[in-house]
Computed example of a mutant assay.
Amino acid sequence: MTIAASPAASGYQSVFAAQLFAGQVVIVTGGGSGIGRCVAHELAHLGAQVVLVGRNSDKLQAVQQEISADGGQASWQACDIRSEAGVTELVQELLARHGRIDALVNNAGGQFMAPLESISAKGWEAVVNTNLTGGFLLARECFKQSMAQQGGSIVNIVADMWGSMPGMGHSGAARAGMVSFTETAAVEWARAGVRVNAVAPGYIASSGMDNYPPEAAGLLRAIPRTVPAGRMGTEAEVSAAVLFLLSPAAAFISGSVLRVDGARPQGRAGWGMQLPDAAARQRPAVQPFAGFHRAQLPRVFQD
């Protein structure tokens, strides 16, 4: 199994042009950890004023301090995105503070491992409200209060739910709903100069894996053998996809889903998995991109 470590560098090693997002105000939900933390760092490195949103104030403040120490601009605001009133008030406060919202990265989410028959209505609703309804509410308010007048870009983080998500059916249903929402919003909001896309991470070596129970460790360590690329992805590889969709280079892309998954959904029963050998893994086209200088390997892979 190969999981890339972050390079020994003094700052984020982005592939994008310096100051690409200078002057832009970008909201990143779930910015206190994992993929959201990485996206926030890269945006700030490229000149954006990043607003970190989540429920855990301590985590948000810690990431804001990291970004400031690296020379970037960031602020944070605690909010439960499942609350319609709370989201409406959040966007109002951010507009009063910054005057505009140029982009939104709907990254907040969460789920737990369970077969369908054991999921209660409360558990189902908690996951759907976080992974679907909360993203819709935030996107709607950003559009109504700001983007309808000035345009903007939205990227929704979904998941590899093609072909189902056994063991996390609540999350699969919510993510599929977010893909449909992405496609619909792209059509309805194009009139205002707003683009809406999604990024679907596959198996990413992110801190979110630290939230799974200890008995899942063996399953997590075996994952790379199910991926044609022969490894897990990095947070920086997901962030690069997000920033591409936010960038001017994606001006004619809307309503699309960009998968970052090493061809994982194309694996088929009856086809012997042919994983890259050591020589193939060293070829430039498939080398892991590890641009996030503060990346942290999940504990399950540190043994």
Rank of each mutant, 00 (worst) to 15 (best):
Q49T: 12
E93W: 00
R82H: 01
L95R: 09
Q61F: 11
G169R: 06
R268L: 10
S206W: 05
A173F: 01
P201H: 06
G109Y: 04
T184M: 10
N131F: 02
E117S: 10
A78T: 14
V53Y: 02
R140L: 05
W76F: 08
V158T: 13
M161N: 13
M1Q: 15
D70I: 06
M1F: 03
R294K: 15
S206K: 07
W189N: 00
C142K: 00
S164W: 08
I67C: 02
Q111H: 12
I101A: 05
T234A: 05
R283Q: 15
T2C: 06
M147D: 00
A241W: 01
D80M: 12
A205K: 07
S206T: 15
F292I: 08
G255F: 00
L132A: 07
L43D: 02
V286A: 09
Q65E: 14
P228S: 10
G36T: 11
G32V: 02
A121N: 12
L43R: 01
H293L: 11
I67V: 08
A148V: 03
Y203A: 15
L219V: 14
V91A: 03
E125L: 15
G230Y: 05
L258P: 02
W189D: 00
F292M: 11
V51T: 08
T88A: 12
V179K: 05
P213S: 13
W162Q: 14
Q145P: 06
A200Y: 01
E188S: 09
M165Y: 04
V227H: 04
A4Y: 05
F252R: 10
M113I: 15
R231H: 04
E89D: 13
A74W: 03
F252P: 04
G267Y: 03
W271P: 01
G208T: 08
Q73N: 15
F143A: 00
A290H: 02
T234Q: 05
S171F: 04
L94T: 02
V257A: 05
S120P: 04
R140Y: 02
V15G: 08
S256H: 15
T88W: 05
A148L: 10
H41I: 05
F301Q: 07
R231L: 11
P265V: 02
A108H: 10
P166V: 08
A121Y: 07
S239P: 06
R225K: 14
G34V: 08
I3F: 08
